[in-house]
Nucleic acid binder design. Structure first.
Lengths: 346, 346
DNA sequence: CTAGGTATCCAAAACGTTTTGCACAACCCT
DNA sequence: AGGGTTGTGCAAAACGTTTTGGATACCTAG
């Protein structure tokens, strides 16, 4: 018995509140009141209305409702790349927070593309969304954002923006993360390290580097990367070709896990073994970090919490019209010591 | 020089088309025409209007526009878990396809929660979104979906639904994937295998198993899991405790990578080495698969394409009102042979 | 000088709700 | 009997657009 093929109904105008009103012999006002409970309605009339609603399959048009209410109960989440597990986790946190308050979440995936970002920011200017959680992942243009933040509810996630100190912000404690790595490597006896940073324009990247340098108190060679696996590979491979790591350099700290993987690959190709010859540390603790070989020592970022907190802050502002008491949340990070670090080779 | 702290402007009603009209000394109609170019307007007047638009920072309210137009240019993407890389990739494809046609994408993350799914489906019933890409990941309730698909544009991604043959569908060729694995293992000399399936109610899961069994032509012991790492671990660990793998069983095929990882862990804990003692194969090719130790042999699913194709189909239907010629797309999969499979031990 | 264009703009309707002020009846209390 | 309350429901305004049928003035050709 094969089920009969599915049939698409002919399109027809969906029932409106007026249709319901007419069919039930009441005014649209009364239907509205029955459905919203905003004012009392005679139980007998209400029952009749409800029955008509069911029969006609009436569902209020949320557009009209939003237009009247002046808000849509939808916010946006702007991120560069949803297929990056960090942002996926962040998105999950944001979606949870939004859902808790009955809000929808529009995914604004920019691919680091400015045009795309602009188009999405247009959604807030045209008031299609009530607010935006902004986690651009690239150095945001301050001017553009500032103009927007003055007029519309925007919360920053993961990345702060120079000069927007009064804004709503949730971010991981990047500096502390860097410090933890510095202490860890120092304790293991390392005295010279190679640091692969992210783009200079990113505060988070700088904070990681600063924290590291301060706590490590050894000699650090900094190379600027772009957070991609290829850059981690390229920088290290090039260095190795040009005569190897700096003398006595026994550790590599990459500002994110992807670059660490790249570094890992380059080291392995050069015949160096991790962690025996060189220790490697990443940042982010993406899922692959624990599965890699060797498992990567890294700093766990609370991506989910960052997304959730930023969104909760935004919604508190949006729904209650008040800026939350703590308008800046710095969330704790955690060092995950795994197999890619070991005491410095003598 | 610290930048001065950011100031939030006092909230005031945003300028409407009437404000612009008044300030420019024309009617709202004219403003609308200037902006849309729908009808010609005297260039002198138009210039004046445009200048006022800029001065007032007027942006048309998309809600009102949508209400009038009868559509919102936003569609939904319903998935169970955005932090799963498979769905993240799928989401990326969907977002790309939507963006290409000027559509926004609302992320509907259900966490396998029926209430949550219902709430999101409400968005389409209330016409807040023009359509929905449905990739529930769990056996969808046919009745609920059928009623909805008759009335609203819905495309199925990744998972088909029994009896909805006429619907828009994009899915990977699960059966072929299973076959590829079967042939691979058979060629390597394996004759007995353990298969960890997904939930029985999922078509995709069954298709993988069927394809495998057919092509392997050896003896297959099937154990039903739930696509989670824990279930892969649990099933295999239990088996090993109760007397080990079936005699001469030299291969394990898990219906997805996560379960394969679980199996890998259980085998390792029992002192069995992969692939020397047992070969292990997964399905999905999530990022961690290639980074695991040993790198996992698995079937690559075109998650991005599935999302993109399903969305493109949906939008073709939504924008042009016509069902696309090929309303069912089966996308090719690819076997990635890595380190977790080897010739059967004698 | 008039009939038919053309260029330019506007008023009003429509989209589908919610909200608010009011009307009408029925009831209660003194 | 009259004033106040309560219960019930409606009409109209408002939200901010786009669309459509005219209206007005000017111009051109006959």
């Amino acid at each position: 018995m094969t089920p009969e093929p599915f049939q698409r109904e002919a399109v027809r105008r969906p029932a409106s509140i007026k249709d319901v009103a007419a069919a039930a012999g009441v005014s649209a006002t009364t239907v509205s009141h029955v459905l919203s409970g905003n004012r009392p309605v005679n139980e007998h009339t209400a029952a009749r209305v409800r029955s008509v609603v069911n029969r006609l399959g009436y569902v209020p048009a949320s557009l009209a409702r939003s237009l009247q209410a002046g808000s849509t109960s939808v916010i946006g989440l702007l991120i560069p790349d949803i297929s990056n597990t960090f942002f996926a986790e962040l998105a999950k946190g944001a979606e949870d927070a939004a859902h808790d308050l009955g809000y929808g979440l529009i995914l604004c995936n920019t691919e680091f593309d400015a045009d795309r970002e602009d188009r999405y920011l247009g959604m807030i200017r045209s008031r299609f969304i009530d607010g935006m959680v902004y986690a651009s992942g690239s150095p945001p243009s301050r001017r553009r954002l500032e103009a927007l933040m003055g007029k519309f509810p925007i919360a920053l996630a993961d990345e702060e923006v120079e000069g927007l100190e009064g804004a709503l912000i949730a971010t991981a404690d990047h500096e502390a993360g860097g410090r933890l790595v510095g202490e860890h490597l120092r304790t293991l006896g390392h005295r010279r390290a190679l640091m692969l940073t992210g783009p200079r324009a990113l505060r988070s990247s700088n904070a990681r580097a600063n924290g590291f340098v301060r706590a490590f108190r050894g000699e650090v060679v900094e190379l600027v990367g772009d957070f991609k696996e290829s850059s981690g590979y390229g920088l290290v491979a090039k260095l190795l070709q040009e005569g190897g790591l700096p003398e006595d350099c026994t550790a590599v700290f990459a500002a994110n896990d992807l670059m660490a993987f790249g570094a890992l690959l380059a080291l392995r190709e050069a015949g160096l073994s991790v962690p025996e010859d060189v220790s490697v540390v990443g940042f982010d603790d993406i899922r692959a970090a624990s599965l890699a070989h060797p498992p990567l020592t890294t700093v766990h970022q609370p991506a989910y919490d960052v997304g959730r907190t930023a969104t909760a802050q935004l919604l508190q502002y949006v729904t209650r019209g008040e800026v939350p008491p703590a308008s800046r949340h710095t969330l704790p990070v955690e060092l995950k010591v795994r197999g890619s670090t070991a005491p410095a080779a003598r």
